Amino acid sequence: METLRFNFSGGQHRLSGAQLVGVVGSGNLEVLIEQRPLNGACEVEISTAAHGFGAIWEAVVRDFHQRWQLADVHVAINDMGATPAVVSLRLDQAAESITGSMGGGAA
């Protein structure tokens, strides 16, 4: 397993609570998104079975951060080979379910 960590600043939207979406055994991806005191940062930690895809992961999670602008949020991703499209979908599902907002950009 490879572990990747990314931190983003400049988020404007804070969450309350936590949300788990997906199952590693079904769709090969699980995302947990939760509020944490991170001095306004959005922290993403990825555990993946697919080695050598750090640049792709960074692009996907950077795009997610730009859409949602989350602050004081920790995102944990457990991956067993999901495609970037599935990753993006699960990230948006987690953010939508915890914010009640659709289409990116927390309320």
Score class of each variant (00 low, 15 high):
residue 99 T to Y: 06
residue 9 S to T: 15
residue 102 M to A: 14
residue 28 N to L: 14
residue 90 R to E: 06
residue 91 L to K: 00
residue 49 A to T: 15
residue 58 E to A: 06
residue 107 A to I: 13
residue 8 F to C: 10
residue 25 G to C: 13
residue 51 H to R: 11
residue 55 A to E: 15
residue 84 P to M: 09
residue 74 H to Q: 14
residue 84 P to T: 09
residue 95 A to I: 02
residue 20 L to S: 08
residue 17 G to T: 03
residue 7 N to Q: 14
residue 104 G to H: 09
residue 29 L to H: 03
residue 79 D to H: 05
residue 53 F to T: 14
residue 91 L to M: 08
residue 74 H to D: 08
residue 80 M to G: 09
residue 101 S to M: 02
residue 97 S to F: 07
residue 78 N to T: 12
residue 23 V to E: 15
residue 41 A to E: 15
residue 60 V to Y: 01
residue 6 F to R: 03
residue 88 S to C: 10
residue 89 L to Y: 13
residue 55 A to W: 04
residue 104 G to F: 04
residue 83 T to N: 10
residue 24 V to S: 10
residue 61 V to G: 02
residue 6 F to T: 06
residue 95 A to R: 00
residue 19 Q to Y: 07
residue 68 W to D: 00
residue 47 S to W: 02
residue 75 V to Q: 06
residue 4 L to N: 07
residue 11 G to D: 03
residue 73 V to P: 00
residue 57 W to P: 02
residue 88 S to F: 08
residue 80 M to H: 14
residue 103 G to R: 08
residue 55 A to Y: 08
residue 64 F to G: 00
residue 26 S to P: 00
residue 28 N to T: 05
residue 9 S to P: 04
residue 45 E to D: 07
residue 54 G to K: 10
residue 22 G to T: 02
residue 16 S to H: 09
residue 26 S to G: 11
residue 68 W to C: 00
residue 32 L to C: 07
residue 107 A to S: 10
residue 37 P to K: 14
residue 70 L to S: 05
residue 61 V to L: 08
residue 101 S to G: 05
residue 28 N to I: 02
residue 9 S to Y: 13
residue 34 E to R: 14
residue 68 W to K: 02
residue 13 H to V: 11
residue 20 L to C: 09
residue 80 M to W: 03
residue 12 Q to S: 13
residue 97 S to A: 15
residue 38 L to M: 07
residue 10 G to D: 10
residue 51 H to P: 04
residue 103 G to C: 07
residue 45 E to T: 12
residue 39 N to R: 15
residue 18 A to E: 12
residue 69 Q to D: 05
residue 45 E to A: 11
residue 59 A to Q: 09
residue 45 E to L: 12
residue 60 V to Q: 10
residue 67 R to G: 03
residue 47 S to P: 01
residue 96 E to M: 01
residue 17 G to S: 05
residue 27 G to R: 03
residue 84 P to F: 12
residue 53 F to G: 11
residue 10 G to C: 09
residue 46 I to W: 05
residue 101 S to A: 15
residue 19 Q to K: 14
residue 92 D to R: 04
residue 44 V to F: 11
residue 14 R to K: 15
residue 94 A to M: 08
residue 81 G to L: 04
residue 37 P to W: 12
residue 106 A to Q: 00
residue 26 S to H: 13
residue 57 W to N: 04
residue 51 H to Y: 15
residue 80 M to L: 11
residue 12 Q to K: 15
